[in-house]
Simulated scan of single mutants.
Amino acid sequence: MSMSERTGARTGKPLIESDRVEGTDVYSPDGTSIGSIKRLMIDKVSGKVAYAVMGFGGFLGMGEEEYTVPWSKLDYDTSLGGYRTDITESQLRGSPTFYRSGDYDWSDRNRERELHDYWGVPFYWGGV
């Protein structure tokens, strides 16, 4: 089921505004909140959501770390009112430091490949 179909099941609409996704909790396999979505990274040409940048740790936004997760790792769970993932806290902490720098070069496909390989998901752009 596509993301829009899952969202549509909850809202009765096939689409959701990006500001409604931002701040949504992300839950581990056991249902524990492991963070929340800070922003979405969208491919300009295809319009596909490529990544969710998640905030993790800290208190009231202070000391929070940001991690980039391929969008395909998240599934909306209507019973939780948030996104469920098979990602554990230790996997998140060990993930590549992809978006922890504000001046990151998002055009570096090799770094994107590293991120996708780490999470074991296909490239969002469909290439090799």
Rank of each mutant, 00 (worst) to 15 (best):
L60T: 05
T68F: 04
D117H: 06
M62C: 08
G47P: 01
D77L: 09
P122I: 08
V21K: 03
S95R: 07
K38E: 14
A9S: 10
L92E: 01
F56C: 14
D86Y: 05
K13T: 09
G127T: 12
D25N: 15
S72Q: 14
Y118N: 04
D43M: 05
D30G: 12
G47Y: 04
D75L: 12
G94N: 15
S33L: 05
P14D: 08
Q91H: 04
A52V: 01
G55F: 04
E65V: 00
S28L: 07
S72V: 11
M54L: 15
K38N: 13
Y27I: 03
P96K: 03
Y99P: 01
L15S: 12
G126T: 10
H116A: 13
T78C: 08
G120S: 08
V21L: 15
S33Q: 14
G94L: 12
G35R: 03
D75Y: 07
G94E: 14
L74W: 02
S33K: 15
Y104N: 15
S18I: 12
Y124P: 00
R6K: 13
S46A: 09
K73N: 11
Y118E: 08
R20C: 08
Q91P: 09
D117V: 12
V121P: 02
E114L: 10
K38S: 15
W119Q: 07
D108T: 06
G8H: 00
S28K: 03
S72Y: 00
P122V: 09
R20E: 12
T85V: 06
Y99L: 10
T88E: 04
S36P: 01
Y118D: 10
P14W: 07
W125S: 05
D103A: 12
W106G: 08
R109S: 13
G57W: 00
R84V: 07
G102A: 11
Y27M: 06
I42H: 02
T78W: 07
F56E: 11
Y99R: 13
V21Y: 04
T88L: 01
E114G: 09
T85Y: 05
I34N: 06
S107H: 11
L40Q: 09
R113S: 08
P122R: 11
F56N: 14
S2D: 13
E64L: 06
L92F: 01
W71S: 12
T88D: 07
V53G: 05
A9M: 13
G55L: 03
D25E: 12
D103E: 11
T24P: 01
E89G: 03
